[in-house]
Write a protein that binds this DNA or RNA. Sequence first.
DNA 1: CGTTTAAATAATAGCGCTATTATATTGACG
DNA 2: CGTCAATATAATAGCGCTATTATTTAAACG
Lengths: 348, 348
Amino acid sequence: MDTRRSAKPTRKRRKMQRVTMMDVAARAEVSPSTVSLYLRKPDAVSASASEAIAQSIEALNYVPNLMAGGLAAASSRAVSIIVPSVRNAFFAETVATMQAELGKERLQVLLGHTEYSEREEENLVRMALSWAPAAIVLTGLSHSNATRKLLRESNVPVVEIWELGSEPIEMAVGFHHEQVGRSMAAHLIQRNRRNLVFLGARLQEDKRATHRAEGFVEEARKTSGATVDIIQHPAPSSAEVGAMLLGETMRKFPQVDGIACSNDHVALGVIFECQRLGIDIPGQLSVIGFGDLSFSAASNPSLTTIRPPGDLIGTEAARLILERIADSGERKPTVIDTRFTLLHRQSS
Amino acid sequence: MDTRRSAKPTRKRRKMQRVTMMDVAARAEVSPSTVSLYLRKPDAVSASASEAIAQSIEALNYVPNLMAGGLAAASSRAVSIIVPSVRNAFFAETVATMQAELGKERLQVLLGHTEYSEREEENLVRMALSWAPAAIVLTGLSHSNATRKLLRESNVPVVEIWELGSEPIEMAVGFHHEQVGRSMAAHLIQRNRRNLVFLGARLQEDKRATHRAEGFVEEARKTSGATVDIIQHPAPSSAEVGAMLLGETMRKFPQVDGIACSNDHVALGVIFECQRLGIDIPGQLSVIGFGDLSFSAASNPSLTTIRPPGDLIGTEAARLILERIADSGERKPTVIDTRFTLLHRQSS
DNA sequence: CGTTTAAATAATAGCGCTATTATATTGACG
DNA sequence: CGTCAATATAATAGCGCTATTATTTAAACG
């Protein structure tokens, strides 16, 4: 047949993985197929074979090559999670929870940060698709058309988190931020506050904070005799921004008696600034935040706030992904409203 | 329509990727090898071929399959980053920075959380190795022997972050926490404080906080006439724990005049509790924290603290990885001391 | 007990790419 | 112009696994 290179040793040899599935199979005296089956569906393999394979894996210290597996299966055990930034405690909570939940099923988390840019999100989705992920998790419901197209054509399960409102791509887990704003306003009004202000940081980029502000304003307007305004700053949320915005508020609206903040960092800054200015909370001014961050219960006064269920969003999103993978194939549109909780503390 | 494959339905056909490198090559009228080369080493391909290939990729909207690439190359464009938890702002900062830096070079971040467990770290390393990562990033210098063995045998570049002190596996970027503790003590003593206490949260698990506490105690002991103690709580850092620990401190050591905290969350709790108890900071008590978190500069009084360069750790670690990948192959032990900064504010 | 059916195992053919080697094309230079 | 080296492109052989199909073995049953 082929006599061209009979004498020569084979033309190429690449360094290979220490231990392969074939090695495991050989030692366990079964076929590689059986080892693969054992790894993917242990129940389909007899007890005796399972025993031998497990022992062989242990003895050889076998580490499966997921690249090979993913290539052959045309889908990998990776889940891409794309959030604005993990520097933000909200998303950190959800990412951490999801990693823990998905890790149990040996799914690997691929992380990406959009920094609130749809353009960057698109890049990250493109990169993620290169890994043939088992699912992609996006934050929020606004995405570029190109992103949507990529996702649609790829046929990868998609979960959108942290926001409900418009039509999700496939599955969504979150809550209505506009409702958060309404709850904040209703609470302040119930505390007999009528001159309301919403302090917002980085509202241009943080659409969810904007929705909260909008809900706040709408709800406040429903009460006759109440006034409402939004005061904002383009920098990311921080106590410094909060302090600054309070100063601005007192200058522009000295009669203000109720303040809602885009999040607890801002609210903390308000509390500190009020301490410095001698403004009594809640006597003169009620303050409500968003986030229930680590300091909110311990501050002085303790901070009334909205607690978003970042961990629940993570567990539910992970659950949806796991179920979706199990029922391999079918798109199944699902929306889970996790709600949120208003925690009434001393500041209101 | 699809003209790529023959009509004859052979025995097996798996659903395959929409567009492959072969498709790109066909359209550009070059060989697949040239396309691969273009993607990996653009400079090695002629201008005319590059042009044609780029156009083809664009037209077909080609998304490379990194699983196939990783399998063939026996190494993937993934970097595994394993931290205690991304819920912790320190690690979130570093992870976010690294993702941004590595993303520029189209390296994908795989994320894992140990929750301060060496056992879990080992699992995560094992999982990570399944992906044939370009590098693995670990937090701190303490790892199980099994972890070390896995890493040694895999020959994957390793960077340990956020801690210096003992011998790193290969590369390390961070600072000496024991020096942080010393700086804290030296600062308080310089402010004429002599009755010192270190407030620690979760010291059993957080070895780095323990090192800070130890450095603090050692430095304080060098000053004759100074007393020093550690008061701790097993719960994770929070303002609540800080408030609680301050109460305990005032009961046990009413003469205390200088407090260092394992981090700024704890320090913030101390500040709040002092406000409630009517303790004057810094008149009666000086407080220093660790972390320079988002609220630290804005608190009342503003918080003296140590700023750890979480972002610098990230950029330097990313740089080391990139260089190491470029010089493909050789282990090159490197230690980068990023130092830290003491920020003197009102609380001391 | 032989036959049918189900369960367990094995053989097989790629998945889409990279790295190596081989070949074709161009450039340098006497 | 012819030779030799450099440069650019192409052909080739897997990487280690999964999914499909084929085969063997065990269980069920009249």
